[in-house]
Write a protein that binds this DNA or RNA. Structure first.
Lengths: 249, 249
DNA sequence: GAAATATTATGTATTTTGTACGCAAAGAAG
DNA sequence: CTTCTTTGCGTACAAAATACATAATATTTC
């Protein structure tokens, strides 16, 4: 860092003269290492899960960490998040959105590091999903503990963000296979929101929105009467978003 | 920047050995200058406004810029935002929330600078509000143009964030005086959301939430029948948030 | 001071949406 | 064939959103 002679815009006296050398200005600014962390959610056995890796810092020995990396010099923030996702899961076409920047001066034991947290949603059963590193594991979001850095707080923020978002937008479908039954969809909402919903009213609500495509196919290998399978009509949703109603809580 | 020998967590080979010197690790990371930018909204003459300053970079001569500053070495992100607010407006007890990080590599002509955008809401008529710098001006959000950096995009994101938020939480009151009439409140919602609402139903909705305190005082110096003045009961809201209903759109 | 005008304040009728159930049909298991 | 579970459809009732009517109170105008 080279901030000895940095003059912040806030303290700079306005002389009427404009700053001509903006490169010199920026070089005088103190700099901070930036990382991007991905909170990758999946849904398995009726539980919301998050993908974590064992920390490779001695300081956090045995603790779990989010999947992150250093931001490259000429890389977009989102680009970095996609890069992490691709390398860790083998998947490229996944839902990804920025949630929040975390920048407490003491959040990293090695000095100040600011991280931008991204939330990602994917289908754990997807055929493209390939997790090579055996230090990677899916963890139930319900009982997280023993996490490195401020990563527990980051997961909590992303989880709350997700709870709000799935009620307002059709994000939840990213966590399911392309074809799903209404029961699977309901289980997902119940698990994420932590509530019990009435089957019949849940069904009625989704049908009234008219975004589900009836595939005229049925579940297989279920130990009960198979339910119909549906697809979400993302195209129709984009055209007429207003018909999306908030889900009960 | 000292990233010649930086090894990203993603590429680091997992040998089973843990990293003991986390300070050396962080020092090897490339670093980026960080700024915090405040999108300060106010409400005046039935219009949403944003506080801007003339850019002091020759590159952006004549263009308008958000109020921002360099992040200090041991400063919390939010702390920096409060510092900017205090120095620019003289106010310390204002609504402030992080909205998004903006980090395109080319958003600053002097080299890469990442900024964390905060949204702030204040009452333009507040007696504590003191704007010293005569390069500072309130601008209508409706017709912004000629802005420096990516600041126009940042304002747009914050505006959209605000539109969503005022429907779900009682943020709007931060833009009004402590005592306000129902008409002022409705004008505020109509201006921010860009819709027309029915007076009688708007009133009914707010009264049914039961968060407004009837002050038994009336408007003064208005050219028509004075309306009753109310205060928002933040305490009651904190206890029973569930009674907040979404406002119409 | 009376009438016209503008705005506040309150109410009601209708429609739409949410909620709580009942029950038949389809498959699985014994 | 009977029992159990789950899907799928329907209906009655309660709550909320919407549209609109009218009275009350102040200012302005003549």
């Amino acid at each position: 860092m080279n901030n000895a002679d940095a003059v912040s815009p806030l303290l700079r006296k306005r002389t009427g003269e404009l700053i001509s050398d903006s490169k010199a200005l920026v070089s005088s600014y103190p700099a901070v290492p930036i990382t991007v962390d991905c909170v990758i959610f999946g849904f398995e056995e009726n539980e919301l899960k998050v993908l974590l890796i064992r920390s490779d810092l001695q300081f956090f020995e045995g603790k779990w960490s989010l999947l992150g990396d250093i931001l490259k010099e000429t890389e977009e923030l989102k680009e970095a998040a996609y890069r992490i996702l691709l390398q860790r899961t083998g998947m490229s076409d996944v839902f990804l959105e920025q949630v929040k920047a975390f920048g407490s001066p003491d959040r990293h034991p090695g000095g100040r590091v600011i991280t931008i947290a991204y939330c990602s949603l994917l289908n754990i059963q997807h055929h493209e999903l390939k997790i090579y590193d055996n230090e990677l594991h899916w963890h139930k979001v319900k009982n997280l503990c023993n996490m490195a850095f401020d990563h527990q707080a980051i997961v909590v923020e992303c989880y709350q963000w997700l709870q709000k978002r799935i009620q307002e937008h059709p994000l939840a479908f990213n966590l399911l296979p392309e074809k799903f039954s209404l029961r699977e969809l309901q289980n997902l909402y119940e698990a994420i929101l932590g509530v019990e919903l009435d089957r019949r009213n849940f069904r009625k609500k989704f049908f009234s929105m008219d975004f589900l495509i009836d595939l005229d196919q049925y579940e297989e290998n279920v130990p009960h009467r198979p339910g119909k399978l549906y697809k979400f009509n993302f195209g129709k949703y984009e055209i007429n978003k207003k018909k999306w109603f908030a889900i009960d809580f």
